[in-house]
Design a protein around this nucleic acid. Sequence first.
DNA 1: GTGGGATCGGTTTTT
DNA 2: CCGATCCCAC
Length: 783
Amino acid sequence: MRLFKILYVHLSAWVIFALMSYLDELNDVQREAVIHSDGPTLIVAGPGSGKTRVLTYRIAHLLNKGADPFGILALTFTNKASEAMRARIEKISGNNARSLYMGTFHSVFARILRVEAPKIGYPSNFTIYDAEDSKSLIKTIIKEQGLDDKIYKPNQVYNRISSMKNSLITPQAYAQDGELLTEDQNQRRPATGTLYQIYCDRCFKSGAMDFDDLLLNTHVILEKFPDVLYRYQHKFRYVLIDEFQDTNYLQYEIVRKIADVFQNITVVGDDAQSIYAFRGATIDNILNFEKDFPELKVYKLEQNYRSTQKIVKAANELIHRNKNQIKKEIWTQNDKGEDIKIVRTPSDNEEGRWVADSIQELKFREQYKNNDFAILYRTNAQSRAFEEALRRLNIPYKIYGGMSFYQRKEVKDLLSYMKLTVNHNDEEALKRVINYPARGIGQTTLDKIGIIATNEGKSMWEVLDTIFMTDFSARTKNAIEEFVMMIKSFAAQQLKMTAYDLAAHIGKTTKLIAELYNDKTVEGIARYENIQELLNSIKEFVEDDEVAENISAEDAAGLANDKTLGSFLQTVTLLTGDEKSAENIDSVKMMTIHSAKGLEFPTVYVVGLEENLFPGAQSLYSLEDLEEERRLFYVAITRAESRLFLTYANTRYKFGQLNYCEASRFIQEVPENVVSYHGDLKKPKVHQPQHQPISTFSRIVSPASPKPISQPVQSHPIEPFIPDDANTLQTGMEVLHEKFGEGKVVSIEGSGVNKIASIFFSAYGVKKIMLKFAKVKILSGGN
DNA sequence: GTGGGATCGGTTTTT
DNA sequence: CCGATCCCAC
């Protein structure tokens, strides 16, 4: 018997081993981390240390050892990361990979909530509000409450609500929290708590959850229903988390609860790459992790397989400047490599051209492919100059992030019809489409409906559905009834049609497609194509017929083989970019540094390295913020395998306004590197202060300034006139002068680039002149 | 209720 | 520059 057992163990070990040639690809620490048996595990992994590989192999290893794929919960932060991981696991372990509970926190919990949400009164067909929907709802509430949206900025209110949810502070708790209330008081926003409460109520009534709710409600259910918690604790025998340094309190609390029974929790992270503090991520989670799971086994992956020595050295020196860090040193056996190049260009446009030229040259000289290049920037808005330059050289490129396909107006419109079909109570979807295309249900009507809904405690849809009971005009009632009938007819066909047919049917019946088709402008055609593209993607979604068999209803919910419209909508709202679109075409990649995390490229350009842009102006006031920016820079440079360029521009447009920029402090922090300059440093002729006092302007003015137009001369500063190109510097006053002779500024209204100057000209009397960009427009006065 | 022109204000970063 | 909003004429 005993012999048998030994034999059996040996045999199965041998079989497993045969399947595991992949283990050969790992170094010792990596391998240990992969095969490490049960229990809590922390893998501290520097950039390029094979972190994703370890995580994927660990999962594959579990599967190969016979673990139930439905019992593995693997959480990532981006769809990109989870798809990449799934693909790699599939290669090793085959189809099982499709059954894993693997995805972003949001998508996995959304999937769980489809089943569990009814426990807290949500319908299982709840829709998901993206940030735009949420802000729009907040704005409506602010208006309804008679508050000023200049003081209660929807964006800020949204962020505050979001951070409350992520800290598990309920509206009730908020209302009793002295500290928070004082904060609001100080910011002149005493009603924030009320807004929070109403916002939650409204989402609930609309049967909608925002991004944070997907986490929050999961937590609420696990807390409130011990039986549910018990079920998931026993279901998920293994829990794995990627990019653990980016989890926030709420996310950590959920996984901590779930992993509490088996304690098989593996987290992978690197404090030096924590770049999401702004949405609540905290390094405390790592510290708490050690406390909450004392049995913890720690692995440190410090060998870098990605970059040259020079890059690794630069990264180390840079990150060591941070006070807040867990000391570690990455090292590499790779070649020494080339110098890191620092490049200054005269303007943002020339920065674009320089980078494009450089790519062109390297492609030619080193036989690189487009895929080998990435351009990384701090903000999405920076992509423009590079796009233009690359297009000029016919270099294909792909931009990740920014406005995603699914956030485009026309796409969201059609999606909103679908959302409304699935969940009639979705107020944001309703408001979006009820009068688009125009069907005579205008703002006034909508406002009234809103009021009735609030008064009677109904959703807007319920009011519409019983519109015959109201005293709207016959015309309005007809329009509304027709609309309601239409949506109901869509809903009735949900079960009879595939998601694709239904979507196409909706597009046709609502005349939305026709409306776009008739618009023959360039944008109109693009919009029409986007709708076609959307329909295509639904078709693809429907036809991707990989089916997992013999699974429970619970596991089926939201799985890849759920082809309902609702399932498509969920997938799509949790998608950020258009991840699906051809990864394989050979193109230069452009993205923010945030979305570059986890990726690597032979050649990387980190661009826009200017003070106030990177690090951003808002980050200069606290050490924490500055250090987060530095970690971001660390992430950026460690994406590079062999070539790294750091570029910055001497001048840059911002809202059409030309600004002079200085090199980022981070550039000085990169050691021993060649600096190459391109073009002349433009000595700012106009460098004078952004803020020139009015009196300076008055100097070019005729001597006898006639009197006095009643407006007092204000002491507002006026910005120097904006040249339309770095080369044509000419002040606005010079333009005006040429045109009208001499004059004097008597007052300035407006702000930003939309200044209006009332200027007196001897020949014409007072004129209002708009100083916008390089254009001068006479608005009033004279002839 | 609809559509056009004038006006105003805004840039981190992501699910 | 570009979207949201306000105001005014149909």
